[in-house]
Every structure is written in C-alpha cells, then in structure tokens.
Write a protein that binds this DNA or RNA. Structure first.
Lengths: 164, 164
DNA sequence: CATAGTACTTGCACTCTGCAATTATCTATG
DNA sequence: CATAGATAATTGCAGAGTGCAAGTACTATG
C-alpha cells in the first residue's frame, strides 16, 4: 500500500485557517496591552475586561458583568475581587435584593481605565489605519455576522459543531 | 467640582473595540474544537497547533515549529513531548547537526489530525457560509493586513505600541 | 582543546481554571 | 411564619498551563 507520505490529507493549513488567523491577530494585539496593565497595575486579563465593563455600566451585578465580557461566574467573582483589592471597584449590596452585589468603578479605577483605554485605542487605531474607509465598514459588518455565528457554534458544543 | 458620574471618558467600549471582537470570535469558535481534541485525545491547544504544523511540514525542528504556530521554545518543547507520549509524533536527531531534533508526524498522529481537521474545517465552513463570495475575499485581504500590523505591534512591546 | 554559542529540555514557582461545596439571601408553600 | 427549595455569589482545592533560571548536548572558533 503506497502511502503518499505528504501534506495534510484534509486541506486544513493552520496559517490560512480562519479561526487561527483571527486568534493570531487577537493574541498579538492583546499582548502589549496585557503587559502594560499587568506590569503597571497588577491587573489580570479578566480584571481589565471587567474594569472596561463597569466603566461604562454602573452598579452592575456579577452576572451582568460576566455576560458582558464572556466570563464564567467564578472568574467574574475573582476579577471583581482583584479590582476591589486594587481599589478600582467597590461592591455594595443591592437595595431590593441583597444577593445581587452592585459593582461600581471608583475614581482611581476610572483613572486606570482611561490610561489603559488610551493605549487600547491607540492600538486599534494602528490596525484601522491600515484599512480604507470601505474596508472598515466591510470588516464591521463581517465581524457582526461572525460574532453571531460563533456564538451559535459555541453554544452547540462540539457534538453538533458540524451541523447547520 | 461637578463630576459627570457617567460612561467611559475614553471612548473605548469593550463590545465594539476591534481587538476584543476578534478575540471573542476566535475564542468562541475555538472552544468546541478544544473540548473535542481535549476529551478525545488528551491534546492541549499547543499540541493541536504543533500537530497541524507537522502534518504539513515534515521533519521540522522545534524552532521552525514554534515560529509557525506562535509558541515560545518552552511551550514548543512541551507540546512536542506531549505528542510523542501520545504516539502522534517522533523525534529523531538531525543527521548533520544533532542539536536539531527533526520532528515528524506518525501514522496515528495523522489519523488524529484528520479527525480534528475535519471538525475544524466544518466550523470554518459554518463561518464562511454566512459570508458572500466578495465578503470572503475582502475578509481575506483585510486579515492579511491586520496580521502584518499586529505582528509589528507585538514586536514593539507596549512602550511604543502607540507609535506609528 | 578550551571557550563560547546554539538548540533544546527540565525543574520550580507562580498563575489560571474548573468544579464541588459553602454562604447568604430570597421565594413559595403548607 | 417556619421551612424547604431556589438563586447569586464566593471560596477551597486540585490540576493544567506559563515564565524563567539552570542544565544538557552538541557545534563552531580562536
């Protein structure tokens, strides 16, 4: 049995596989930002995401925050804990239902957020600078569709990731 | 001093920040695949990436593999170690220079790769199915530019991530 | 042939994650 | 109105992943 000892039987080539390409850009772009807020503020990735969420949405509870930045309840709780230790957020018991802890950003949290966001915006600007106006619009609409479909794929799990 | 207790001073809104959008799609799409190869073969993310690389490039050394899938030498070494333990790869000492270990995929490694790649291709197909032919072409060229710029951003580190 | 350099590996401390168990609180029921 | 059952959040702990110093094996150079 002559076995063609060569290349991928399935056509999957990592460097041109869409999910890997997206991952690579996301990872490379995130790294400088991560080391910035890590070294400067001792913030974790989850901490930064939560900080960004509470910067625009005041007095959110943990579940809302988790949904907004794709973190499970454990990670959310730990992230909020980190932010409160750093003095970037405060927890207050909800007024009507005391199980819901309302999380709010503090003044120094907002200062930190603004510094990080400035770098984040600069990075985004560098990426966008490579694209024409029409390319940006196209990317935006394409990403919206991909977000939609990827949420569906994620929700289904691998057993039916191949389906529809 | 009247402080406007509201929204992000910097315009950065997580859900419309390009790097986060890319990250989200990549993460959601990767999860089902990861649980598939994790549960089925006990493969880590690094292991899968390396498997995909040696499936198309035979007898590569660790440095080449690492470059091809964006892993540092430590992670690469451990990933190769995992693959050899699973019987999916073999290391042979290089003929001319014995410091370079030539890594090759085994028959069972290729079988595993084909199964995983089939699911991976199906997932990619689901994403692409949401796009028109012209959108796919646009996304491809846009991603090429973004890959280029993100590599530059990553290489620079955060101290000059803001610069040109 | 000693020295320096290269490719890779290993050990260890540290962080991150996933999950079970817990706490605190609220709701529904008899 | 006690109490059983939900619900929101937290904590403890084990396992996996990560970063870095040090080590091994080999090659190149003066």
């Amino acid at each position: 049995m002559k076995q063609t000892a060569r290349a991928a039987d399935d056509g999957l080539k990592l460097s041109s596989w869409l999910p890997y390409r997206l991952f690579l850009v996301a990872a490379q772009v995130a790294r400088p930002l991560e080391s910035f807020y890590g070294e400067t503020y001792g913030l974790s990735q989850a901490g930064w995401r939560i900080l960004a969420v509470i910067a625009e949405r005041d007095a959110a509870n943990a579940a809302e925050i988790g949904r907004a930045c794709a973190l499970d309840p454990f990670a959310t709780s730990r992230g909020i804990g980190q932010l409160t230790e750093l003095g970037f957020a405060v927890r207050r018991a909800g007024k009507s239902d005391r199980r819901f802890a309302a999380v709010s950003i503090t003044r120094s949290g907002r200062t930190a957020f603004n510094r990080i966001a400035a770098l984040g915006s600069a990075i985004e600007a560098r990426l966008l600078a490579r694209l024409s106006e029409s390319e940006r619009a196209a990317l935006d609409s394409t990403l919206t569709r991909l977000e939609d479909e990827s949420a569906r794929i994620d929700a289904g799990g691998w057993r039916d990731a191949g389906a529809s």
